[in-house]
Every structure is written in structure tokens, then in C-alpha cells.
Design a protein around this nucleic acid. Sequence first.
DNA 1: ACATATCCAACTTATTTGGTCGGATATGAA
DNA 2: TTCATATCCGACCAAATAAGTTGGATATGT
Lengths: 146, 146
Amino acid sequence: MKLSTKGRYGLRAMIDLAIHSKENQVSIKSISERQEISENYLERIIALLKKAGYVKSTRGAQGGYMLTKKPDQISVGNILRALEGDLNPVDCSLINDEKVCSESGLCVTKFVWKRISDSINDVVDNISLQDLVNEQVEIDKSQASR
Amino acid sequence: MKLSTKGRYGLRAMIDLAIHSKENQVSIKSISERQEISENYLERIIALLKKAGYVKSTRGAQGGYMLTKKPDQISVGNILRALEGDLNPVDCSLINDEKVCSESGLCVTKFVWKRISDSINDVVDNISLQDLVNEQVEIDKSQASR
DNA sequence: ACATATCCAACTTATTTGGTCGGATATGAA
DNA sequence: TTCATATCCGACCAAATAAGTTGGATATGT
């Protein structure tokens, strides 16, 4: 029941992009340095985010990545689902309304999985990238004044 | 971000035990037949539940397993944590109140992980085994009358 | 004594995770 | 036009984890 590094690194990369790509293109290399994530691996993660439509790229010198939308229009749920797939605790078609569980006839455990799934999605869909940027700014501020 | 078969099978086994171990010992074999889970594997899963104190065993002929408490005193959270370990989406000591993230200085993603973690635990701690037994009984009833 | 059980460690296999590597392609600037 | 800087992309790889099996020891009611 763990998120993979894709989700963790990817979310950090998106926060980094939100902060740094306001005017300029941001290269993998610079994100990689700030976030201490390997360039090669980060490249693959950002490819997923691009495919999902949350970042756009410019190739060549002075190229890099930018967000496609404002940070308040991208939720943590959008990002995590792009990287991790659905956030259901089980692969279970019945989570979407079917009564019969392939695993063992009628099983009540699906009610549990559904509620977990709903609660996770509710949390992540109600935190925007902007919210995290704001918190990061706050933290940086309080750090600077020490 | 998936639960393993341990969690899924184990919860079903506990529901089965709650329904069938009211008077009699229940053998692995019988659970295995009803739930269509391999005897060998189920044995290992139930060993974890025993270790965690939710089931007790009697060896030898006519032996088997029983719950140690009433089903309304055992939560789904108790069961899942016994089988899956903590239900946090990331292994992050900072989820418990430290400010500094070993991964990359100060990171705001921890607020996200904490909220996910809290919401999952809140859900599973508020569903008891008895709740699931009740739902199962309802389903069986409505099935029987078709 | 024997069938029925749990107990338990060691082993195996398949899948997923977490990357790396090498080269192709694009492009702004010197 | 060349070159450094980028993205793009498929193939590959090692380690960890999940999922399950096997074999035998031990206990116990009949």
C-alpha cells in the first residue's frame, strides 16, 4: 500500500516546475539538481506527465518544460493518477458498481475498497499544485528568518 | 498503491471466521474451500493474524481457529495493518511530525501523504468486522430470495 | 495408532520497481 | 554551419517484493 517513487518524485518535480517555469523553460537537468533526482529517471517521469497533458516541452538549446495550466488548475490527484494509475487499493471492476466479485462470488470487502478509494481521491482532488506551492513559500520564508 | 493479496485474502478469511467460528473451531481447510484461497497460503496469512492477536488456534484433530474478540471489537484497520503494515502511502518518518524530509530538505509533499494516510486510517478504523458480517448477511438474504 | 490439524522454515517463481544506457532528433547561438 | 544543449525514446538490467509451494515437525481427539 505504498506510492512508488514515480508519484513521489513526480509530485516534487511538478512543484518545482510550478515555482520555476513561470517565464522560462525549465530543463530536466535543473530540476534534477534542485530535487536530487537522477536526470535519466526524471526524464521518464516527466514524459508521463507530458503524455497526460500537464506539461509541455520545447526541444533543443534553451528548451525545457513548462506547465500547461496554472498550478491552481492542476490537482495532486491529476498528477498522482497520471503517474501511478488509478488510486484504488484493489483492482476490482466491482468498485464501479457491479455486484459480483470475480474473486469469490459476492464479496462485501468491495464496500471497504470503495470507501478507501473514495477517501483517497477526495483528499488528492482537493489539494491543488498551487496549495503546495503556497506552503512551500511559507516554509522557505520561515527558514530564511532563522 | 495497491493492497496485496495478504490484505484482501486476510480480510475475507476474517469475515469467514466471524461467520463460522461462533461455536466451532474453523479449520484452514474449510475457509480455504469456501473462500477459494490455497490452504498453504492461507495458513501463512492466518499466522499473521494470530501473531497480531486477532485469532487463536487449537491444534490437533477437531482443532482450528476462532476469533479472540467479538467482531464488533475488531476493525478493518486492525486487520489490514496486521497484514500490510502501516497504511501510509509513503515511508516517511516525517509523516509523524518532523519538519525535515530526508529526501530533499523541507518538502511539502509530506502534507499530502499525511492527509492521505489519515483519511485511509479513518475509513478502515470506522468499519468493524461486524459491519461487514451484517452486510454479507443482507446480501445472502437478497440472493436467496431471487 | 491414526487421521486431522496447526506450526514453521526454507525454497521458488513471477512481477514490479527503480532505475540505466545509447543513440536519434531538434534548435538557439556563435 | 557547427556545436552545445535539450528533449525523445526504446531496450536493457538488477534488486526487491509479492505470491505461493513444499516438506516435515508437532499436537490431539477418537
